[in-house]
Design a binder for these strands. Structure first.
Length: 377
DNA sequence: TAGGCCATCTGGTCCT
DNA sequence: AGGACCAGATGGCCTA
């Protein structure tokens, strides 16, 4: 018994969203902080002293002229943070000499002299806190790694940055939701546009590479065939793309006529490239065609052909496409992501020995199986 | 070499 | 009180 496509997509979206929700709850503050930093950078001139104490602005030059001010402050405050000590009678005021002068007495709790035992306890507490913080950050990074494995581009050797992973994951969820809402599959161009919205240029190139798209095509010629663009109401629809492809549009990755000509090229589970009106499919037999320079994504998310030969460029294309198991079995859809490496006789996992890092999508969790079932319907 | 990304340390704050 | 979380500071590594 098969689930309906809508059901499968809904389950997939929900699982991914659940996974992300926890991650976002942990990382979102960092993202917000980035935005806040940006705003703050633009308003740094407006920074003012906080109070009458003449406290310097935290972005001010005073701080810059005093390296490790935080550390010295930390030491001074560390000296007074053990209020539970009961040996008050043996302690003295920390700033007795200073307070006897012209300066007004400091308010607040009196600092206590550090005994050797207190210093030891303080150090021990700090070490424990550091260890906890390390563990916490490692957990957070593990969650991010898990997230990297479920977004459309994944490589063990060249990971997406944290922020790019979050952005891509968000776009991925939105794209799946859009597919679910519309009930039909977008073409690969609009799909990649969805995934790449707001991503940096390198990440955009990587996603396009995963889909074997020349970014020049989908960035500068989006939806030249309007009928192929299935998401008129999508928030992703036809928006000017901020990034230009540098690597994928380089001559090395282009056909003889420039950008990779996409025609009946199949790119994924039901995804089709948008061909230039009147264009022709690439002639793979033509000596001018250098399609093998474009990183073909094999069935298991690996890359085949020339990519195995060029060690330098290999690094940039160790990316898997997560739809490897989501292919249609329809004839004529021998996609690069096909279930049995149908493209050009099949790109099997054994064809990609150099790519140890490529994640085999078939080993994935139920959502992928559900999606696979969906695309087999 | 500048900039991006990251890990780590650290003190402050909040919560249980 | 102790732990979790946050944010600033710092230094290392890598790449264009």
């Amino acid at each position: 018994m098969r689930n309906s496509p809508a059901q499968v997509l809904f389950v997939s979206c929900r699982l991914l969203a659940t996974m992300l929700s926890r991650l976002f709850s942990e990382v979102l503050p960092d993202v917000q902080r980035l935005a806040a930093d940006w705003v703050e950078d633009n308003e740094s001139e407006d920074c003012k002293a906080k109070d009458d104490e003449h406290e310097p602005c935290h972005l001010g030059e005073d701080d810059l002229d005093e390296p490790q001010e935080g550390s010295s402050r930390a030491e001074s405050e560390m000296a007074g943070d053990d209020d539970d000590e009961e040996d008050d009678e043996a302690e003295e005021e920390e700033c007795g000499d200073e307070n006897s002068g012209d300066k007004p007495k400091k308010r607040g709790p009196k600092k206590r002299k550090m005994t050797a035992a207190r210093v030891e306890r303080s150090k021990l507490r700090r070490l424990k806190a550091n260890a906890r913080e390390r563990t916490r950050m490692h957990d957070l990074n593990s969650a991010l790694d898990n997230l990297r494995k479920v977004v459309p581009c994944y490589s063990k050797t060249q990971k997406l940055s944290k922020i790019e992973t979050l952005r891509l994951a968000k776009n991925y969820i939105l794209a799946l939701g859009e597919i679910l809402r519309n009930g039909k599959r977008p073409d690969v161009v609009s799909y990649v546009q969805m995934l790449c919205k707001g991503l940096s240029q390198p990440t955009t190139n990587l996603v396009a590479g995963c889909l074997q798209l020349n970014t020049r095509n989908f960035l500068t010629e989006p939806c030249s065939d309007g009928a192929r663009f299935h998401m008129p109401s999508s928030p992703f629809s036809v928006h000017p793309y901020p990034y230009r492809c540098s690597r994928l549009s380089s001559p090395h990755y282009q056909t003889g006529s420039g950008a990779l000509n996409l025609r009946t090229h199949s790119y994924g589970p039901g995804y089709e490239a948008v061909y230039p009106p009147g264009g022709t499919s690439p002639d793979y037999s033509s000596p001018d065609y250098e399609g093998q320079h474009s990183p073909p994504v094999c069935l298991n998310g690996g890359l085949s052909g020339r990519q195995q030969e060029s060690s330098e460029t290999d690094r940039n294309y160790h990316y898997s496409m997560h739809y490897s198991g989501l292919t249609t079995s329809r004839p004529g859809h021998s996609l690069p992501f096909g279930p049995s490496g149908a493209r050009s006789g099949g790109a099997h996992s054994e064809n990609i020995p150099p790519f140890h890092d490529v994640h085999l999508q078939h080993d994935r969790a139920p959502p992928y199986e559900d999606l696979n079932a969906f695309f087999h319907n």
